[in-house]
Structure formats: structure tokens, C-alpha cells
Amino acid sequence: MSINFTILGQSIFFFVFVWFCWKFIWPFLIRAMRERQQTIADGLEAAAKAQRDLEHAEARAEEILNEARAEARGIVDDARGQAVQMIDNARTDAESERERILKAAQADVAQELNRAKETLRGEVADLAVLGAERILEASIDRDRHDALLDRVAADL
């Protein structure tokens, strides 16, 4: 139980083991642990970032979808407006066409009437002369009465 050289031997062992641990054990273990800590921290960070990115992407997708919806609605509205316009145009065209056809028909009718009148006029003179000839049998000077008859025909 006496103090002897063992105390110095133990001191030497102490410094050797502490030195060994200091140089060959501690740094490697600590480095591995720090690296793992870093890896885990990075992984968590990346996961959080991915989560944020996903949220952004979802928001963006929603935005695009809304835009598309609005655009589609716009297109439908435009088309509907255009259709109404086209129907209106068609109606206007049709009406003007009708007007035109009507006018042409009326003009034709008027023309036919005039032609009929002309014909009638010509024939009336002859008929009148014929009638008057029959009535008067002779004696009537055709040239003298033509002017008179023309006036009668014009009054028709």
C-alpha cells in the first residue's frame, strides 16, 4: 500500500492513453457524428424545401387552372356574342334581301301593268275604231280621229 514507482508508471500510461485517444479516437468519432448531424439537418432542410416547393407548385397550378377557366369562359362568351351578331347580321341581310326582292317584284308588276296598259291602249284604239267603224260603217276619217283617239287612250 506504499507509494512507489507505480505512481509514475501510471502517469506515463495516463499520458499515453490520453494522447492516443486525442489523436486517433476522438477526432474520427466526432467527425463522423458531426457529419451525420449535418446530413440529417440537410435532409430535414431539403424535406422542408420540397414541401415548400410542392406548395408553390400547387398554388401555381391552381393559378394556371383559374386562368384557363377564365379564358375558356371568355372564349365561350365571345363565341356566344359572335353568334348573336351573326344571327342579327343574317336577319338584317335577309330583311334587306326581302326588301330588294319585294321591290323588284313590285317593279316587275308595275312594268307588266304598264306593258299590259300599252298593249291595251293600242288595242283599245283599234277596238274603238273598229267599234266606231261598225257603228258608223263608213264616213269616218281615220286620220282625223286618230289624234282624238290617242288622247282617249292616254287617259286610260
Binding site: F17, F20, C21, F24, I25, W26, F28, L29, R31, A32, M33, R34, E35, R36, Q38, T39
Partner: peptide, 13 residues
């Protein structure tokens, strides 16, 4: 030393 050195030598992150 041996036990801890063995662990330190093969320490992986």
C-alpha cells in the same frame, strides 16, 4: 484504446 479505436477507424457518418 482498442475498442474505441476499432469503432473510430470504421466510424461512418
Amino acid at each position: 484504446c482498442l475498442v474505441f479505436w476499432a469503432a473510430a477507424r470504421k466510424a461512418t457518418s
